[in-house]
Design a protein around this nucleic acid. Structure first.
Lengths: 127, 127, 127, 127
DNA sequence: GTGGTCTAGACCACT
DNA sequence: GTGGTCTAGACCACC
């Protein structure tokens, strides 16, 4: 498990941790039942506050992705149907990749792409 | 110029204002040199504090989109090549729309789509 | 008399007008007794508010550089010892030019140069 | 970190704070990665409103000099090449000092010196 | 404890 | 009438 965090990005660090763990699950890098690195260990290795890691784990627990077992550690939820999830993602990835590649080639910035995606989603499901 | 703000969305109001002005520029609704509504006028019509509007305008100025002139008002930056920008956007929109439609059909959530887009961009330009 | 104004520079326009008129006087481009362009004419040709030009002229009058004669127009003050002033300036200019050239060659930005000049002056006279 | 502010100088307080921090960085008093005094702490010790300090910090962030981290504090940007910057400044200072000394000896006023510097810079890079 | 956002309201400078 | 600065003070999010 490797993390690439960007402290100055405006995105809260605990959210960045959450995103990367979700990403790992969606890609089968982390499997149901697998143990996550300990809060203190991870915090120490990333030079960050343990509270930050704890908050990320806690939020992931609320979302049903992680299970915190007192004294034992944090684990990816066993009941997570990762098979189906991974399949969907594997179908979705090339769709996204091709679109993003095309948009970047058009000269759009990261921000512009995200704004367009937001608008497109909102036009179909949003608010 | 019409604004649709969502106070309880967690997204800061000043950011929502910024997004909508950017969106308007990208769609040719606001043209280079055009005057924006006055800070106080807008604040009053949106029932919010002038400082909040001022912050949005100031940030847009930092991004080179808006020009603030003491005593004169706020204007869309003249040197903004809006023609080219609008063209790019008009090409980009259908690309995004189709991809998003496909992803939603696959059953992906809004959050999952955004995460995939982030990852795809990061794999190419980000760090 | 030609003006080069920069509306987005943060420096008030009326100050920019004042600076350029002073500069012209110091260089003998404008001589004592000479008439300045009319307020409305100038404002019209520069596409600005007449009040802005009027303020510049009024301030220059306060500084004793310009004389406003009701109904007749604005003139460079006759009693201005421009000869001596121009001499001093002609000696000073190469000193400044050489220093600035050297500083720019060193890679200093305009802002950094001004900050250093401020500090150097303050160390001798100001506080 | 010590500040010398002049409230009645016409120069906005937040600009004075910015200048002094820049000055400190250029002189190696503040080093990349170093933490700045907290917004509230500084505001309290300077007997001013926290928003004023916050504005100074935010502007410095826009200029890439400071990095603001939610919940962690304000820091001098790590990626600032302060070594090179300080060297340049140390070379530049005597150049400025000698020139200013000569100009003051010639009887130029502070204002005249600044106007000459402005003109000299504009003749080379400005517009 | 840190910075971020927002409100309310005053006063000033500029056009 | 426009934006710019500053104060006072509340509440929230993050580390």
């Amino acid at each position: 498990m490797l993390f690439r965090l960007n402290p100055g990005s405006g995105v809260p660090i605990y959210l960045q941790i959450m995103e990367q763990i979700k990403h790992a699950v969606e890609n089968g890098v982390l499997r149901p039942g697998e143990q996550l690195p300990g809060i203190r260990k991870l915090a120490e290795s990333m030079v960050m506050n343990p509270n930050t890691v704890a908050k990320a784990y806690r939020e992931l627990e609320h979302e049903g992705i992680v299970e915190l077992r007192q004294g034992a550690g944090a684990f990816i939820n066993e009941n997570l149907n990762s098979k189906e999830l991974i399949d969907r993602m594997q179908t979705a990835r090339p769709v996204v990749d091709k679109a993003v590649e095309r948009l970047l080639a058009l000269g759009l910035s990261e921000e512009e792409i995200k704004r367009l995606v937001d608008a497109a989603i909102a036009a179909r499901v949003g608010r």
